[in-house]
Design a protein around this nucleic acid. Sequence first.
DNA 1: CAGAGATTGTACGACATAGTACAGACCCCG
DNA 2: CGGGGTCTGTACTATGTCGTACAATCTCTG
Lengths: 238, 238
Amino acid sequence: MPVPSQRYVRNQLLSILGGDDYGAVQAVAESVMLGRRDILIAGNKTITHVYFLEAGIASEIAATPEGRRIEVCITGREGMVGVPLLLDVDRTPHETFVQIEGEALRIDAASFRTLIEERPNLRRTFANYAYVAHLQTAGTALSNGSHTLEERLARWLLMCHDRVDGDEFPVTHEFLSTMLGVRRPGVTTAIHSLEGGGMIKARRSHIQVLDREKLKTAAGDSYGVPEIEYGRLIRTGR
Amino acid sequence: MPVPSQRYVRNQLLSILGGDDYGAVQAVAESVMLGRRDILIAGNKTITHVYFLEAGIASEIAATPEGRRIEVCITGREGMVGVPLLLDVDRTPHETFVQIEGEALRIDAASFRTLIEERPNLRRTFANYAYVAHLQTAGTALSNGSHTLEERLARWLLMCHDRVDGDEFPVTHEFLSTMLGVRRPGVTTAIHSLEGGGMIKARRSHIQVLDREKLKTAAGDSYGVPEIEYGRLIRTGR
DNA sequence: CAGAGATTGTACGACATAGTACAGACCCCG
DNA sequence: CGGGGTCTGTACTATGTCGTACAATCTCTG
């Protein structure tokens, strides 16, 4: 599959680059399909590629030696996977995997290092994204510490909705319980509650967003801070 | 107060710089005292300085429009305050303030930008720290989501202990409750529990660490991941 | 189209923490 | 040295979530 011209690239970070910067990316990038559960960055292994998602969603998972796992950041076509490489870090204890299948442009680690070394504007755009990702992770910390399960679920669904085409995406209660770090039956109950409010429609292995505004209300103040900063720092014009 | 020579600098990031890089820092840095509750970075205002702590502790607080506040990252002399500037971001919704008074070398925003533009090694060292800070924030997210108050308190005390001289530091239950995002009486109870285990000694407005190893046990797997990565990425040799 | 596996629904007691209230202890300042 | 403010201890009910178990439902495959 060929790497698209900038005009047709769907990744928002790449779409706002200067034309020659994009050309440099295009020269070293390759297009790949992302299958569900593919591991993009394995924990404590050398990072091989940076991914710019064109479609689909990736999740970054923090884990402990004892095996606790919880999602700390999600990325879609608004961002990139592989921030550690940008920060001159070769591997990370966190794992990043494909949560919703899609497609990405990827660049191998060595080429990426050269690229950002030679093109400061590129580095700056990516650095801005890295900061938004930090805000999102901080938002997750805040939310995990002080919002109810229902609010956190609403936040999660909104963030997912922001990153997919259409209003529906595949996700199981079990999966959500891992992402949110809670009990599976708790997720079931929370979903029923949101469904009762007419915000979503749940089907086996799928959730459809019906009323985004109501969902925002249900999320309370857990949703929005990183999203606003993204809009301020990374102006896509699309 | 003069900026110390590298030999006497206490900030660990600065202490490992190449000699000429440190010289460049020294040329634009100024030494300042940090009083309790001083705001180093105000929320949604232009960031004026980067701070390299020589003593004391700073806390980064995530806040929502509705006024929820919770600590997402703490910094002592192992790091720097002002990561957004490193990532070419001029302001942030988060606030960073002085939790334990101390001292810092600071550099104004413009000089800092020039510095990291001209000295890639400097930028890389600071970027590595930025990544460790991300890991710490992710650890906070994990901890807030899946550890008990007592474990989280133990983690917090350990992180504080890592960053002060001696085994005692000033902190009130009320303050801890804000940092951890929990009820104040809950902190009181948790402190009693740790105290009962002989790990700490609590006095009015002060906590003393008596048995660090036991405290680590009490923290379970909530403590340690970012600390290990810091050691791997930033080798201080001191 | 039957059976196996995956997913979802529901129940129940246990527990952690919230919210709130108030009293006691400590400490500094006048 | 007395009084006001800050800090800590404790109590009570309410609520959210846990841990666990098991049944019901859906879906895919053979």
